[in-house]
Design a protein around this nucleic acid. Sequence first.
DNA 1: CCGAGACTTCACTCCTTTCTGAAACCAGTG
DNA 2: CACTGGTTTCAGAAAGGAGTGAAGTCTCGG
Lengths: 181, 181
Amino acid sequence: MSDASEARAKAIELCADTMSELIAFWGFKASTGRIWTLLYLSPEPLPADVIAERTNLSAGAVSMGLQELKQWGIVDRAPSSGERKRLFRAETDVWAIVRRVIRERELRLVGRAVQRFTDASAVLEKAIAANPDDTELTFILGRVRGLLGLATIGYRLVESFAERGLFTLDPIRDALRSADG
Amino acid sequence: MSDASEARAKAIELCADTMSELIAFWGFKASTGRIWTLLYLSPEPLPADVIAERTNLSAGAVSMGLQELKQWGIVDRAPSSGERKRLFRAETDVWAIVRRVIRERELRLVGRAVQRFTDASAVLEKAIAANPDDTELTFILGRVRGLLGLATIGYRLVESFAERGLFTLDPIRDALRSADG
DNA sequence: CCGAGACTTCACTCCTTTCTGAAACCAGTG
DNA sequence: CACTGGTTTCAGAAAGGAGTGAAGTCTCGG
């Protein structure tokens, strides 16, 4: 039996470490990844104090982590029948989670970038209209347009992934070939 | 003229801010992104002191930033003919940069994850062999295998992007459908 | 309504990361 | 071969982020 629970602890630790590394690289807190992994690997929903105990986090940290996860729709309250404590369970459709976060975050990020590069282009175009002989401005505009093109491609990429869950890249490849080559 | 240089400064600032945001999200330092953007938008290679001046960074910070960029092959020393100062210029093939970084970093990251999930599975399988009636172990193994499957798909995705520059996803979609649905 | 336990919030601390400034180092030059 | 910039390195300062712990708020049973 100690054999089994040791194995269980070891496996959970491995997974939690790994997930927290992945998720941290993706801009979340590592501890948030730990909490999710713990719930994901539990057959039963867990109360906050158990989570705190197994992750070695304070009650406050667990509360904040759970809140973040709830906001992303990655963790649920389980219908705790009659219990005093609230029980939490993990959303298990990881693919859906990834898509949601990408849609909410990466898509906005890249969208802002597209906007800003567009603004920069506009500023330059206006200045060039007033100073047609300034070759440096023209040069910069060319480069900025390059960035804008890439950002636009990136946006379509992220968008298609967020919406359909897959990349459909043939149009984007074409854009790449013609715009950038 | 002041009109033109104002526009130039404004456009560069917009782009540098945007790139540093993108790049910071991707795990680099924001100041590194600034330095690269400055070089990318300059028609001529620039010496370190000019970079320091325009980015408001100290000489030391610029030196370190340039070193990081050089290590990634994202910045070059320009063949400074006879000059005392060393001149630096940006790699302009952004697509190639992205692929290189993904290959060197993301691919390794996900590869490690695949390895670790595999290890976790093995631990659990062994424990289950010794304790066939432990339903919790079996449950956890199922979940870990789910993570392993996703990580494997992710690995192929990143790999195909790093190698070919594009995602070729039909096989992965199939894997998804059959493994996860 | 009151009390008890559970959850949340937040000011503070600790730790990590980034930047600075100065000293050491190096490469051309007279 | 010493001198003059220019560049790199590095110890320490500053900034930023995450976690704690205790005080505050909520909820539910009695």
